[in-house]
């Protein structure tokens, strides 16, 4: 490996440090720090209510953390002037448009066709040329195997198809970071595979991905790093081989017993 390649790999696309978040009296995130390097796929595991989804929502500032910082390619999200002044919506939008989010319940826009869903933000938020974006969107639809659904409305698609459109919509942003919030949890078991296959190929193609998931198989085969959360804290993180084969903490062992055997 050359020097420049090493350098490129050193750049953290996402750097989360010391995030805390409290809802009413309940501590949901308790000092979470995490980095995602360029080209890495990081899987966030943990039982329901452990704070995984909230952490993801803090990354694009849909949820405002009480403390801590989030850096996207070194740029601070949500706060400016040394973390004193909250960003306005326009400023937040400029950072958000550099990420692509895939939601558990797809959240496609029901009034737009599949193609319109994909080009909506690139054209109207990123202000890119419509004809170029359409060409890219058609290629993306081809990649996720939905070229024939171009002009269908989301309501006419199966869950698996909706989620593949959701992924294509996120990719059309040409994001520096892809966020997946339990992308297969709302799917019928037989539809999970088609979505997982798309995510695997993205990971292999070198996308930078932060994935909240209960799919242990995906995490084991695809992740560069797995992170186990419980009670708003990171309990253990490491490479998947070691995590699944020989977890260091008792909590991780318990978790794996329950989820992998199930």
């Amino acid at each position: 490996m050359t020097d420049t390649a090493v350098k490129a790999n050193d750049i953290s696309v996402l750097e989360i440090s010391g995030i805390t978040k409290t809802f009413d009296d309940k501590v949901v995130l308790d000092g979470v720090s995490l980095t995602v390097a360029r080209g890495q796929t990081v899987c966030l595991l943990g039982p329901s209510g452990s704070g995984k989804s909230t952490l993801l929502r803090c990354v694009n500032w849909l949820e405002r953390p009480d403390q801590g910082t989030v850096l996207l390619c070194g740029e601070r999200i949500g706060m400016r002037k040394g973390g004193v002044v909250p960003m306005g919506n326009a400023e937040l939008a400029r950072l958000r448009m550099r990420m692509g989010t895939v939601f558990q319940h797809f959240n496609l826009w029901p009034h737009l066709t599949v193609l319109q869903n994909i080009i909506e933000a690139p054209v109207h938020v990123q202000k890119r040329r419509r004809d170029e974006v359409i060409a890219e969107a058609e290629a993306l639809l081809e990649n996720v195997g939905l070229a024939d659904k171009r002009d269908a409305f989301p309501s006419r698609l199966s869950g698996g198809q909706k989620q593949r459109v959701g992924i294509a919509r996120a990719l059309a942003m040409k994001p520096e970071l892809l966020l997946f919030d339990e992308p297969t949890s709302a799917l019928d078991p037989e539809l999970v595979g088609e979505v997982i296959a798309v995510m695997k190929s993205l990971s292999q193609a070198g996308s930078t991905m932060l994935v909240v998931t209960h799919e242990m198989g995906f995490a084991r085969e695809t992740a560069d790093k797995v992170v186990l959360m419980d009670g708003g804290r990171i309990v253990e993180q490491g490479d998947p081989e070691q995590f699944f084969g020989n977890p260091r903490t008792e909590r991780a062992r318990q978790f794996l017993q329950r989820y992998v055997s199930a």
């Binding site: 849909l62 959240n107 933000a121 938020v125």
Partner: peptide, 30 residues
């Protein structure tokens, strides 16, 4: 309206008038 579709738009960088005119009002009108 389903909050989620609006939140998705925010996550994709929509805000202000463009959020209202392109994501919210079309759904309302339908």
């Amino acid at each position: 309206l389903e909050r989620e579709t609006i939140e998705a738009a925010v996550a994709f960088g929509f805000h202000g008038w463009r959020l209202v005119s392109r994501i919210i009002l079309p759904q309302v009108m339908l």
